[in-house]
Amino acid sequence: MNLLELQDVSYVYSEGTPFEMVALHHVSVGFEKGSITGLIGHTGSGKSTLVQLLNGLLRPKQGKILLDGEDIWAKPKEIRKIRYRVGLVMQYPEYQLFDETVRLDIGYALRNMSLPAEEIAERVEEAAAFVHLDSHLLDQSPFALSGGQKRRAALAGVIAMRPQVLVLDEPAAGLDPIGRSEILGGLRKYQESFGGTVILVSHSMEDMAQYCDRIVAMNHSEVFMTGTVEEVFSHAQELSDIGLDIPSIARIALRLQAAGIPLQGSLYTVSGVREAYLRAIAEARQMKAPSEGGDRRV
């Protein structure tokens, strides 16, 4: 079932001026409940606009956005309630930190929601744990943190709202490999423990293959392709035509297949290709073993 759905949504910037620019053109797409959906597309394809429409930062010029089957703009005065349900982490969210301590900053949204103090304290700790932010950092000034820690604090500030849908625009951009896997892995954990729905914008096809269930590919303000990771990445040629790519390991797998090694299974992550490769070797050995009678290496 689709928790969040766009129906024929269009968005135009600076309508009626010389700077008019169509950002989304009749886009219809659904995001399944409890899934992690990756949103890919080259720069300027409309991803960021789409993301800002999802939580009502922008209002569509045409079409509807349905959350749980209800139009989010049915009551424009209560759009803030929608924003608590659809949490958005913008690109490079570090700049949103402002409060005296990290603890207060993570609790900013919760205070806006007028939650009781005990619940705020509890949720702040919980959110900090999801993003692997050490608890001794919570009482420091956010401006004293390192870049990676700031990113985590900003993420926690949105996760603390316990949104039904968590939308993240390039959450791991500019982080080191450990930071990447901790933050993206934390999203997996968040999704598993809350049954939350996650929408992840990223340019890294490797991350997409590893963390997402489904992929939406955008091109020129329109949805180009949707499907499971396997379905989308099996169209390598089409993706490269619109300036996108498949994970490097998937390209290696394609080369291996072209060289006559019969790989089968999920060939989009390093571990998947490794397993398929080992299986192929084992099968090759079994085929050769009866005829030659030895255990020669392939």
């Binding site: 608590y84 900013y108 949204a109 929601m113």
Partner: peptide, 27 residues
Amino acid sequence: KIMNAQKARGADFSNGSLVQRAKALLP
């Protein structure tokens, strides 16, 4: 950009008394 990020966390810049709105701008 910052206004959008704070709006996403429930900031409200257009409602409330003058003092409340001035306070809402701090973040």
